[in-house]
Amino acid sequence: MVDFALFDTRGYPTVDVRTGYAGWVDSYEQTVQDAMDVDVLARLAVPVWPDARTAVDLGCGTGRTGAWLRDRGVGAIDGVDLTPEMLHRARDRGAHRSLTEADLAATGLPAAAYDLAACSLVDEHLADLAPLYREAHRLVRPGGLLVLVGLHPAFIMSAGMPTHYDGPDGPVAITTHVHLVSDHLTAGLAANWQLAEMREQTVGDEWIALKPKWSRHRGQPVSAAYVWRKV
Rank of each mutant, 00 (worst) to 15 (best):
P110R: 04
L195G: 07
A102M: 05
T163Y: 13
R89W: 06
S98D: 10
D92F: 00
S120D: 12
M157Y: 10
P47L: 08
A102I: 06
V17I: 12
G20V: 12
G188A: 06
D57G: 02
T83I: 03
I208N: 08
R89E: 08
V140D: 03
G59E: 03
R70Q: 08
R199L: 15
R89V: 13
T62S: 13
A191I: 02
M157S: 13
H179G: 09
N192Q: 14
W193V: 05
L210H: 07
L69Y: 03
D57A: 02
L129D: 14
V56D: 04
E124K: 15
W193D: 04
Y28R: 05
R64W: 00
R138G: 04
G79Q: 04
W207V: 14
A55K: 04
L151E: 14
A55P: 02
E85M: 07
E197Q: 13
L87R: 00
V172I: 14
Y165S: 05
S158A: 15
V122K: 01
T175M: 12
G160N: 08
T9A: 12
L87T: 01
P50Q: 03
R216Q: 14
V56C: 09
T202E: 12
V74N: 06
D183V: 05
Y28V: 02
T54E: 02
D123C: 15
V2P: 09
E124D: 13
